[in-house]
Protein backbone atom coordinates (compact mmCIF):
# COMPACT_ATOMS: atom_id res chain seq x y z
CA UNK A 1 0.00 0.00 0.00
CA UNK A 2 2.84 2.35 0.90
CA UNK A 3 6.24 1.78 -0.66
CA UNK A 4 9.24 4.02 -0.50
CA UNK A 5 12.39 3.27 -2.46
CA UNK A 6 15.75 4.83 -1.74
CA UNK A 7 14.07 7.79 -0.04
CA UNK A 8 16.65 10.44 0.78
CA UNK A 9 16.17 13.90 2.25
CA UNK A 10 19.04 16.27 2.73
CA UNK A 11 18.49 19.66 4.38
CA UNK A 12 20.96 22.24 3.23
CA UNK A 13 21.64 25.22 5.41
CA UNK A 14 24.17 27.87 4.60
CA UNK A 15 27.15 26.10 6.07
CA UNK A 16 26.20 22.45 6.44
CA UNK A 17 24.09 19.56 5.23
CA UNK A 18 21.90 17.38 7.39
CA UNK A 19 20.77 14.03 6.05
CA UNK A 20 17.38 13.34 7.59
CA UNK A 21 16.54 10.33 5.41
CA UNK A 22 19.31 8.15 4.08
CA UNK A 23 17.96 5.73 1.49
CA UNK A 24 14.81 4.52 3.23
CA UNK A 25 13.04 1.48 1.77
CA UNK A 26 9.74 1.04 3.57
CA UNK A 27 6.96 -1.31 2.71
CA UNK A 28 3.54 -1.24 4.36
CA UNK A 29 1.05 -3.89 3.25
CA UNK A 30 -2.61 -3.12 2.68
CA UNK A 31 -4.75 -3.33 5.80
CA UNK A 32 -1.91 -3.48 8.31
CA UNK A 33 -0.89 -1.13 11.06
CA UNK A 34 2.78 -0.36 10.71
CA UNK A 35 4.75 1.49 13.36
CA UNK A 36 8.01 3.31 12.79
CA UNK A 37 9.92 3.70 16.04
CA UNK A 38 13.09 5.48 16.87
CA UNK A 39 14.50 8.22 19.04
CA UNK A 40 13.87 11.83 18.30
CA UNK A 41 16.08 13.04 15.51
CA UNK A 42 16.10 9.61 13.87
CA UNK A 43 14.12 10.91 10.88
CA UNK A 44 10.67 9.44 11.66
CA UNK A 45 8.93 12.78 11.30
CA UNK A 46 10.60 13.53 7.98
CA UNK A 47 9.71 10.04 6.75
CA UNK A 48 5.99 10.31 7.48
CA UNK A 49 5.87 13.79 5.87
CA UNK A 50 7.63 12.43 2.83
CA UNK A 51 4.88 9.86 2.38
CA UNK A 52 2.35 12.57 1.42
CA UNK A 53 5.07 14.81 0.03
CA UNK A 54 4.72 17.52 2.70
CA UNK A 55 8.48 17.07 2.62
CA UNK A 56 9.67 16.73 -0.94
CA UNK A 57 12.42 14.08 -0.88
CA UNK A 58 15.81 14.88 -2.34
CA UNK A 59 15.74 11.56 -4.18
CA UNK A 60 13.84 8.29 -4.15
CA UNK A 61 10.21 7.46 -4.82
CA UNK A 62 7.01 7.21 -2.79
CA UNK A 63 4.17 5.05 -4.03
CA UNK A 64 0.82 5.08 -2.24
CA UNK A 65 -1.96 2.79 -3.42
CA UNK A 66 -0.25 2.29 -6.77
CA UNK A 67 0.29 6.01 -7.48
CA UNK A 68 3.84 7.34 -7.67
CA UNK A 69 3.47 10.56 -5.68
CA UNK A 70 7.02 11.71 -6.32
CA UNK A 71 6.18 11.80 -10.02
CA UNK A 72 3.18 14.06 -9.28
CA UNK A 73 5.17 16.54 -7.27
CA UNK A 74 6.70 19.43 -9.13
CA UNK A 75 10.14 20.56 -8.21
CA UNK A 76 8.99 23.65 -6.33
CA UNK A 77 7.50 24.00 -2.86
CA UNK A 78 4.01 24.40 -4.31
CA UNK A 79 1.96 21.29 -4.77
CA UNK A 80 0.21 20.85 -8.10
CA UNK A 81 -3.45 19.92 -8.47
CA UNK A 82 -2.65 16.23 -9.06
CA UNK A 83 -0.61 15.92 -5.91
CA UNK A 84 -3.23 17.80 -3.90
CA UNK A 85 -5.86 15.37 -5.12
CA UNK A 86 -3.72 12.43 -4.10
CA UNK A 87 -3.10 13.98 -0.68
CA UNK A 88 -6.82 14.31 -0.12
CA UNK A 89 -6.96 10.49 -0.21
CA UNK A 90 -4.36 10.17 2.53
CA UNK A 91 -5.55 11.02 6.01
CA UNK A 92 -3.17 12.47 8.54
CA UNK A 93 -3.39 13.00 12.28
CA UNK A 94 -0.94 15.07 14.27
CA UNK A 95 0.64 15.08 17.71
CA UNK A 96 -0.81 18.48 18.51
CA UNK A 97 -4.08 17.85 16.66
CA UNK A 98 -3.72 20.95 14.46
CA UNK A 99 -7.39 21.85 14.69
CA UNK A 100 -8.53 25.32 13.63
CA UNK A 101 -9.51 26.98 16.90
CA UNK A 102 -11.72 29.49 15.09
CA UNK A 103 -13.94 26.73 13.69
CA UNK A 104 -16.39 24.46 15.45
CA UNK A 105 -15.70 20.75 15.69
CA UNK A 106 -18.08 20.08 12.83
CA UNK A 107 -16.56 22.80 10.68
CA UNK A 108 -13.12 21.36 11.30
CA UNK A 109 -14.27 17.98 10.03
CA UNK A 110 -15.93 19.68 7.06
CA UNK A 111 -12.73 21.47 6.00
CA UNK A 112 -11.32 18.61 3.86
CA UNK A 113 -14.76 18.27 2.27
CA UNK A 114 -14.77 21.98 1.44
CA UNK A 115 -11.42 21.50 -0.24
CA UNK A 116 -12.84 18.52 -2.15
CA UNK A 117 -15.72 20.79 -3.25
CA UNK A 118 -18.61 18.93 -1.61
CA UNK A 119 -21.93 20.74 -1.20
CA UNK A 120 -22.98 22.14 2.17
CA UNK A 121 -25.61 19.52 2.92
CA UNK A 122 -23.29 16.71 1.88
CA UNK A 123 -20.50 18.10 4.05
CA UNK A 124 -22.74 18.40 7.05
CA UNK A 125 -24.10 14.87 6.66
CA UNK A 126 -20.66 13.35 6.27
CA UNK A 127 -19.12 15.33 9.13
CA UNK A 128 -21.84 14.30 11.55
CA UNK A 129 -21.47 10.69 10.44
CA UNK A 130 -17.74 10.79 11.09
CA UNK A 131 -18.17 12.49 14.44
CA UNK A 132 -20.59 9.73 15.36
CA UNK A 133 -17.97 7.18 14.29
CA UNK A 134 -15.39 8.64 16.67
CA UNK A 135 -17.95 9.06 19.44
CA UNK A 136 -18.25 12.85 19.43
CA UNK A 137 -21.66 13.36 17.83
CA UNK A 138 -22.72 15.58 20.75
CA UNK A 139 -19.75 17.95 20.38
CA UNK A 140 -20.39 19.04 16.79
CA UNK A 141 -21.10 22.67 17.74
CA UNK A 142 -18.35 22.98 20.33
CA UNK A 143 -15.05 24.72 19.67
CA UNK A 144 -11.77 22.80 19.99
CA UNK A 145 -10.84 24.85 23.07
CA UNK A 146 -13.80 23.33 24.89
CA UNK A 147 -12.57 19.76 24.35
CA UNK A 148 -10.09 17.55 26.20
CA UNK A 149 -6.93 16.32 24.49
CA UNK A 150 -8.40 12.93 23.69
CA UNK A 151 -11.54 14.50 22.26
CA UNK A 152 -9.45 16.82 20.11
CA UNK A 153 -7.54 13.87 18.69
CA UNK A 154 -10.84 12.14 17.93
CA UNK A 155 -11.85 15.22 15.96
CA UNK A 156 -8.46 15.06 14.23
CA UNK A 157 -9.12 11.45 13.29
CA UNK A 158 -12.64 12.23 12.06
CA UNK A 159 -11.18 15.02 9.93
CA UNK A 160 -8.51 12.70 8.55
CA UNK A 161 -11.21 10.25 7.51
CA UNK A 162 -13.32 12.82 5.68
CA UNK A 163 -11.70 12.23 2.30
CA UNK A 164 -12.45 8.46 2.51
CA UNK A 165 -8.74 7.66 2.68
CA UNK A 166 -7.29 4.20 2.25
CA UNK A 167 -4.23 5.25 4.19
CA UNK A 168 -3.96 7.04 7.51
CA UNK A 169 -0.71 8.65 8.59
CA UNK A 170 -0.35 9.17 12.32
CA UNK A 171 2.38 11.53 13.49
CA UNK A 172 2.90 10.80 17.19
CA UNK A 173 -0.88 10.98 17.58
CA UNK A 174 -0.86 9.91 21.21
CA UNK A 175 2.36 11.49 22.43
CA UNK A 176 0.58 14.50 23.93
CA UNK A 177 -2.01 12.37 25.72
CA UNK A 178 -2.12 10.67 29.10
CA UNK A 179 -1.83 6.83 29.24
CA UNK A 180 -5.56 6.23 29.66
CA UNK A 181 -6.50 8.46 26.72
CA UNK A 182 -3.66 7.00 24.68
CA UNK A 183 -5.19 3.56 25.09
CA UNK A 184 -8.62 4.70 23.95
CA UNK A 185 -7.25 6.53 20.91
CA UNK A 186 -5.14 3.49 19.95
CA UNK A 187 -8.20 1.33 20.35
CA UNK A 188 -10.05 3.67 17.97
CA UNK A 189 -7.24 3.41 15.41
CA UNK A 190 -7.29 -0.38 15.72
CA UNK A 191 -11.10 -0.43 15.24
CA UNK A 192 -10.87 1.81 12.18
CA UNK A 193 -8.16 -0.44 10.78
CA UNK A 194 -10.39 -3.48 11.23
CA UNK A 195 -13.75 -1.97 10.29
CA UNK A 196 -12.72 0.23 7.36
CA UNK A 197 -9.74 -1.81 6.17
CA UNK A 198 -7.65 1.30 6.70
CA UNK A 199 -3.91 0.96 6.27
CA UNK A 200 -2.19 2.88 9.07
CA UNK A 201 1.37 4.14 9.14
CA UNK A 202 2.24 5.58 12.51
CA UNK A 203 5.39 7.00 13.95
CA UNK A 204 6.03 6.98 17.66
CA UNK A 205 8.78 6.94 20.18
CA UNK A 206 6.71 4.81 22.56
CA UNK A 207 7.10 1.04 22.33
CA UNK A 208 3.78 0.61 24.12
CA UNK A 209 2.02 2.05 21.06
CA UNK A 210 3.66 -0.52 18.82
CA UNK A 211 2.82 -3.26 21.29
CA UNK A 212 -0.82 -2.16 21.44
CA UNK A 213 -1.77 -1.69 17.79
CA UNK A 214 0.94 -2.60 15.30
CA UNK A 215 1.07 -5.64 13.07
CA UNK A 216 4.51 -4.74 11.89
CA UNK A 217 7.20 -2.24 12.76
CA UNK A 218 10.40 -0.61 11.58
CA UNK A 219 13.22 0.84 13.60
CA UNK A 220 14.84 4.06 12.42
CA UNK A 221 18.32 5.19 13.37
CA UNK A 222 20.16 8.13 11.84
CA UNK A 223 17.84 8.34 8.84
CA UNK A 224 18.02 4.62 8.07
CA UNK A 225 15.68 1.73 8.72
CA UNK A 226 17.76 -0.80 10.58
CA UNK A 227 15.14 -3.51 10.94
CA UNK A 228 11.63 -4.03 9.71
CA UNK A 229 9.03 -6.75 9.67
CA UNK A 230 5.97 -8.30 11.23
CA UNK A 231 6.16 -8.17 15.02
CA UNK A 232 6.00 -11.97 15.38
CA UNK A 233 8.91 -12.31 12.96
CA UNK A 234 10.90 -9.64 14.73
CA UNK A 235 10.35 -11.33 18.08
CA UNK A 236 11.67 -14.52 16.54
CA UNK A 237 14.73 -12.78 15.16
CA UNK A 238 17.88 -13.11 17.28
CA UNK A 239 19.34 -9.75 18.21
CA UNK A 240 16.24 -7.77 17.19
CA UNK A 241 16.35 -4.43 18.91
CA UNK A 242 12.63 -3.96 18.48
CA UNK A 243 12.00 -7.29 20.18
CA UNK A 244 14.34 -6.34 23.01
CA UNK A 245 12.64 -2.99 23.39
CA UNK A 246 9.19 -4.57 23.28
CA UNK A 247 10.30 -7.03 25.92
CA UNK A 248 13.00 -5.55 28.00
CA UNK A 249 14.37 -8.35 30.21
CA UNK A 250 15.81 -7.51 33.56
CA UNK A 251 18.55 -9.50 35.24
CA UNK A 252 22.29 -9.24 34.85
CA UNK A 253 23.18 -10.89 31.55
CA UNK A 254 26.82 -11.29 32.52
CA UNK A 255 26.66 -14.33 34.79
CA UNK A 256 29.65 -15.96 36.35
CA UNK A 257 32.12 -17.54 33.87
CA UNK A 258 30.90 -21.02 34.64
CA UNK A 259 27.29 -20.23 33.89
CA UNK A 260 25.22 -19.85 30.73
CA UNK A 261 22.55 -17.15 30.32
CA UNK A 262 19.81 -17.91 27.80
CA UNK A 263 16.92 -15.69 26.58
CA UNK A 264 13.84 -17.65 25.56
CA UNK A 265 10.94 -16.23 23.52
CA UNK A 266 7.59 -18.02 23.58
CA UNK A 267 5.20 -17.33 20.74
CA UNK A 268 1.56 -18.33 20.24
CA UNK A 269 0.70 -21.87 21.51
CA UNK A 270 4.13 -22.32 23.10
CA UNK A 271 3.20 -19.89 25.79
CA UNK A 272 0.93 -22.53 27.34
CA UNK A 273 3.68 -25.17 27.57
CA UNK A 274 5.48 -25.98 30.87
CA UNK A 275 8.82 -25.96 29.09
CA UNK A 276 11.08 -24.98 31.97
CA UNK A 277 9.95 -27.62 34.41
CA UNK A 278 10.18 -30.09 31.56
CA UNK A 279 13.80 -29.03 30.97
CA UNK A 280 14.69 -29.30 34.64
CA UNK A 281 13.22 -32.73 35.00
CA UNK A 282 14.57 -34.17 31.76
CA UNK A 283 18.19 -33.07 32.26
CA UNK A 284 18.14 -32.84 36.00
CA UNK A 285 19.63 -29.33 36.06
CA UNK A 286 18.87 -26.32 38.25
CA UNK A 287 17.38 -23.53 36.24
CA UNK A 288 17.43 -20.02 37.73
CA UNK A 289 14.98 -17.57 36.27
CA UNK A 290 16.59 -14.08 36.02
CA UNK A 291 13.62 -12.29 34.51
CA UNK A 292 10.39 -13.00 32.69
CA UNK A 293 7.45 -11.23 31.11
CA UNK A 294 4.21 -12.14 29.41
CA UNK A 295 2.30 -9.75 27.14
CA UNK A 296 0.03 -9.38 24.16
CA UNK A 297 1.78 -8.06 21.07
CA UNK A 298 -0.19 -7.35 17.95
CA UNK A 299 -3.07 -9.37 19.43
CA UNK A 300 -0.90 -12.45 20.15
CA UNK A 301 0.38 -13.82 23.44
CA UNK A 302 4.12 -13.51 23.75
CA UNK A 303 6.42 -14.44 26.59
CA UNK A 304 10.08 -13.78 27.19
CA UNK A 305 12.29 -15.28 29.83
CA UNK A 306 15.93 -15.00 30.82
CA UNK A 307 17.28 -18.12 32.51
CA UNK A 308 20.63 -19.19 33.84
CA UNK A 309 22.01 -22.72 33.49
CA UNK A 310 24.95 -24.00 35.54
CA UNK A 311 28.18 -24.65 33.70
CA UNK A 312 29.66 -23.06 30.57
CA UNK A 313 27.96 -23.12 27.18
CA UNK A 314 29.76 -26.27 26.04
CA UNK A 315 28.16 -28.28 28.85
CA UNK A 316 24.70 -26.99 28.02
CA UNK A 317 24.54 -27.70 24.29
CA UNK A 318 22.11 -30.57 24.78
CA UNK A 319 19.55 -28.80 26.99
CA UNK A 320 19.62 -25.77 24.68
CA UNK A 321 19.06 -28.08 21.75
CA UNK A 322 16.06 -29.45 23.64
CA UNK A 323 14.60 -25.93 23.99
CA UNK A 324 15.09 -25.27 20.28
CA UNK A 325 13.25 -28.51 19.52
CA UNK A 326 10.26 -27.18 21.42
CA UNK A 327 9.97 -24.47 18.76
CA UNK A 328 11.22 -21.69 21.03
CA UNK A 329 13.36 -18.74 20.05
CA UNK A 330 16.68 -19.09 21.89
CA UNK A 331 19.41 -16.58 22.31
CA UNK A 332 22.66 -17.18 24.21
CA UNK A 333 23.41 -13.90 25.94
CA UNK A 334 26.94 -14.59 27.16
CA UNK A 335 27.96 -16.17 23.87
CA UNK A 336 26.78 -13.22 21.85
CA UNK A 337 28.86 -10.94 24.06
CA UNK A 338 31.86 -13.21 23.55
CA UNK A 339 31.46 -12.87 19.79
CA UNK A 340 31.16 -9.06 20.06
CA UNK A 341 34.31 -8.90 22.17
CA UNK A 342 36.22 -10.85 19.55
CA UNK A 343 35.04 -8.43 16.87
CA UNK A 344 36.05 -5.48 18.96
CA UNK A 345 39.57 -6.85 19.44
CA UNK A 346 39.80 -7.55 15.73
CA UNK A 347 38.66 -3.99 14.97
CA UNK A 348 41.30 -2.50 17.23
CA UNK A 349 43.96 -4.79 15.75
CA UNK A 350 43.19 -3.45 12.30
Amino acid sequence: MITTKGLTKVYRTRDREVTALDGVDLHVREGEVHGVVGQSGAGKSTLIRAVNLLEVPTSGTVTVDGTDLTALAGNGKRAGAELRKARARIGMVFQHFNLLSARTVQDNVELPLEILGHSGAERSRKALELLDLVGLADKAKAYPAQLSGGQKQRVGIARALAGDPKVLLSDEATSALDPETTRSILQLLRDLNRDLGLTVLLITHEMDVVKAVCDSASLMKNGKITESGALSDLLATPGSEIAAELFPLTGDPLGAPDRTVVDITFLGENTGQPVISHLARTYNIDVSILGAAMDTVGGKQVGRMRIELPGPYEENVVPIGFLREQGLQIEIVGAADAVKDTQLVAGVAQ
Partner: peptide
Protein backbone atom coordinates in the same frame (compact mmCIF):
# COMPACT_ATOMS: atom_id res chain seq x y z
CA UNK B 1 -0.51 31.13 13.36
CA UNK B 2 0.73 27.65 14.25
CA UNK B 3 2.66 26.12 11.35
CA UNK B 4 0.96 22.81 12.13
CA UNK B 5 -2.32 24.21 10.83
CA UNK B 6 -0.70 25.03 7.50
CA UNK B 7 0.65 21.51 7.37
CA UNK B 8 -2.76 20.06 8.23
CA UNK B 9 -4.48 21.96 5.42
CA UNK B 10 -1.78 20.95 2.96
CA UNK B 11 -2.06 17.35 4.09
CA UNK B 12 -5.78 17.33 3.30
CA UNK B 13 -5.03 18.53 -0.23
CA UNK B 14 -5.39 22.29 0.26
CA UNK B 15 -3.67 24.75 -2.07
CA UNK B 16 -1.78 27.80 -0.88
CA UNK B 17 -4.93 29.85 -1.49
CA UNK B 18 -6.85 27.46 0.78
CA UNK B 19 -4.12 27.73 3.40
CA UNK B 20 -4.44 31.52 3.36
CA UNK B 21 -8.21 31.82 3.31
CA UNK B 22 -9.20 28.82 5.43
CA UNK B 23 -6.39 28.71 7.95
CA UNK B 24 -4.06 31.72 8.13
CA UNK B 25 -6.53 34.60 7.94
CA UNK B 26 -9.38 33.10 10.01
CA UNK B 27 -6.93 31.97 12.70
CA UNK B 28 -5.19 35.34 12.75
CA UNK B 29 -8.46 37.28 12.79
Amino acid sequence: VDGGLVEAVQAMGGSTRTVVFKALLPQAL
